[in-house]
Design a protein around this nucleic acid. Structure first.
Lengths: 223, 223
DNA sequence: TCAATAAATGAACAGTGTTTAGTTATGAGC
DNA sequence: GCTCATAACTAAACACTGTTCATTTATTGA
């Protein structure tokens, strides 16, 4: 039995070696420029060997994706020691963007690349990948329970918030940053987060003035 | 001269034919599955002929990208006949998402694919592609001028809004919709847009109550 | 030591984007 | 009409890609 265990260990070590090597190469040159032969050469094996440990190239990407989701989840939980759920949510957003910008290749793999999200969230149903989303929903729910949010469908609210941070992250990763002057990207992230949060403060401050002056009622009309 | 003109016309017609055929094939089977040979075969030419009209495959994608930006811009201006800049902005957002979901292959090409945004907004500086963004900035500025927005850096505000709609569009395009129940995606879009807009209404309504009761001042603290 | 199993590979297959040498069509000048 | 330069086009190849499979090499239990 011990020898069988060793075999299995070696097998999983080999898988780890391949995954590690692949990711390092990806980080270095980008997915589209890395081939199975590159990976094999780097670890001094023949290309065919790779296929003894992974069904195909997509299987490697898929596995790395799962690792990415685990990494993201770790980032998320580690920075969630705030009592106020709104603060927690804000921090979660910043952590999310931070993860994306510090691990752009992972983020690409997980959320931008074709077939990334769907394949992970579908096939691997209720497994990793949904964890971070559940965390988000939990925070959203608490915000609603504490009256910090309007009470709407939790999925919709979570989706809206996710969309926002995903939009920021993916645009920056795709190089939209070059449109801005030399001052760091961080100001833009912080600024845009603040803008979104202050947005309605301002709007309502105006509206409040009106309310007080001529008792205008909020109609809730779709703008 | 007339004959030279005809030649040039034929040349541009051939380019158009290639682009059209390529895009139709892309729409049908997705980029990653379409080859130069596919395109050539469809129009009954040899693969080598394609290279007489386009430098390489990326050149085709790049040109289609430019066409996509023109299409987007048309969509944007056509639906901007509102007087209220905030309404205009809201409509622009909805139009943007509509364009993305109705032309997912174009949108992918323009904003999601690797090298999409940067290459288009950089190389083609001050040309197409920036038009829509300038339109957005113009609207943002007007909103600020009319006091509907807090006065912040226009680029930051525009980036925040763009991020939001891009996030929605790209997540849905990547198949996040499957996470939601059977009811249409439209409800989610509308809902999440409304959520973001109502967000602070609600928050401030609460805050207002507090303000009135114990004169608490808005600190502007970073949450 | 020997058969059986596992691990690794060389060589090939079908496909890709791209280049180049060579062929075919076109239009101008005689 | 006939030449001839120019333009349009292509067959064939090149260097790649992901992937498979027959074959070889290494490891193990009897």
């Amino acid at each position: 039995m011990s020898i069988k265990e060793r075999k299995e260990l070696e097998k999983s070590e080999m898988r780890g070696l391949i995954l590690n090597t692949a990711m390092n190469l990806f980080l270095d040159k980008g997915f589209e420029n890395i081939t199975i032969r590159n990976i094999a050469e780097k670890i001094d094996y023949s290309p065919a060997t790779i296929y003894l440990y992974f069904k195909n190239k997509d299987d490697i990407l898929f596995t790395l994706r799962k690792i990415g989701f685990e990494k993201l989840y770790e980032h998320q939980v580690s920075s969630l020691k705030f009592d106020d759920p709104l603060k927690r949510l804000h921090r979660q957003g910043k952590t999310y963007i931070k993860f994306a910008l510090e691990n752009p290749e992972y983020y690409d793999l997980m959320f931008i690349m074709r077939g990334a999200v769907a394949r992970t969230l579908d096939i691997n149903n209720c497994d990793v990948g949904l964890d971070s989303y559940e965390l988000l929903k939990k925070n959203v729910k608490e915000c609603m329970d504490e009256g910090l949010f309007p009470r709407t469908d939790i999925d919709v609210a979570a989706f809206a918030l996710w969309s926002y941070v995903h939009g920021i992250a993916s645009l920056i990763i795709r190089g939209v940053g070059i449109m801005f002057p030399e001052e760091g990207i961080n100001d833009i992230i912080e600024g845009s987060l603040n803008f979104m949060l202050k947005f309605d403060d301002h709007k309502n401050r105006n509206k409040k003035k009106l309310d007080l002056s001529n008792k205008q009622k909020t109609t809730g009309e779709n703008i």
